[in-house]
Structure formats: C-alpha cells, structure tokens
Amino acid sequence: MIYFNNVTKKYKDSTSLEGINISITQGEFVAIVGHSGAGKTTLTKLILAEEAPTEGTVYFESTNIHKLSNKDLTNFRRKVGVVFQDYRLLSNKTVYENIAFAMEAIEKSEKEIAQDVPHVLELVDMTNRASHFPHQLSGGEKQRLAIARAIITQPDLIIADEPTGNLDPINTNEVVNLLKKINDLGTTVILTTHNRSVVDQVKKRVITLENGRVIRDDKDGKYML
C-alpha cells in the first residue's frame, strides 16, 4: 500500500531521514517508534505530501505521491485520515461541525452527514459534547474528536502522529484502543510514538528509527530503545 523507496530527507543543515526502505501493506497496524528528532514526524509528512523527499520516492499503491497535481493530491488526501499530537481541530467549529467538515470536504450529502456523524460521535463517546467548541474540551476529548474526524470518511489509511503525546495514561489507553478497533475493521493504521506502554499494548509491527535510519523492523515487536 505504501512504499518508501530509498528515501532521504535533508533540511538546510541536517538530515532528518536517510535511505528509508519500508513497505506497509493494506490492513496493517504499524507503530513507528524513536526518540524525539528520530524522523518519525518527517516520515508522516512525506506520506501526506506536506514535505517532499530530497532523494527517493514514496508510493501510495503505484502512484508517486510527490508527483501528484493539486487536484489529485486532494483526492489522495481524502483516502487518508490524520490524527496529530496537537489535535489540529478547527477552533471556530463545534465538535459536530468539525466532524461534518471532513464529510463536506469530500462532498457527502446532508443526509449522509446527518446519518454518519452521530454514529461516529457515539463510537468515540462524544455524543453529549456535540455542540461544544474545541477549547471547551479536555485533551482526551480533543484527541477522540480528532480520531472521529479522521475515520468519518472511512479512509484506507489512518496516520496518527504521536496521538497520545499530550494525554494521561487513561486517555492514552482509550485512544490506543480506539485505533486498534479501527484497525480491526480493516483500516491501515500508522502510529508514531515514543511511549513504551503504547507500543507494548498494541503488540503489532514496530519500526524503530534512530537518527533518521531504520534500525529495527519487528513483525510482532516491542519497544526497544
């Protein structure tokens, strides 16, 4: 599904990723671990085409993501749901509107929105928060909302970049379980984290990055750094 072919990403005076070769198949749950600055976030930015590689290519199916036109890039992004450490919610929109926005963006009808949004709100246990604004929510609630927004469009792939970074253990547990549940339903999940308990809880494939290189890729991995 996603292939990194000898990818290197350099910034002005530093190398963030070097010679990355990874293949992720449909339906996998992949945890990408590493210390801060190991290159985890750069990796997700390359998949989302927020950044372009200095060398090498990143493929989604058989398409080079970084050669897509603006329109095709928009269509590609519709197949990917994203969850960030800092939530990145739309602050002027309510919980309901934040989720509905993702559906409106891909031109779903009002009827579909009215059907699906309450369903997803229930899934992330946010039904009673529907009319609240992001600044009225706790960290855990914000992240559950971000996940709800990411899955409402039924994407092929969910990228969760340090989704538990700002959460306490209880909320972390909830978010990880939610991501596992989504993966069980068939969606590919890429999770970046430096939280040992999260990785050990997931018990899935673990790719370990250090100084921009893959130093370990275990099918049924544990956090080892």
């Binding site: 989302l48 927020e50 603006n70 329109k71 928009t74 269509n75 992004r77 519709r78 994203v82 990145r88 919610l89 739309l90 602050s91 002027n92 926005f101 993702a102 409106e104 963006a105 891909i106 927004r149 469009t153």
Partner: peptide, 16 residues
C-alpha cells in the same frame, strides 16, 4: 494558516 493546513489534510479542495 494552521486551520487552512488542516482543511487541506482533511481533503478539502481549494475552492471549499
């Protein structure tokens, strides 16, 4: 700009 970026990542087109 951050919100605009999020909208892009969610898959909203330029016009929207």
């Amino acid at each position: 700009r951050e919100e605009i970026n999020v909208m892009k990542l969610v898959g909203a087109d330029g016009g929207y």
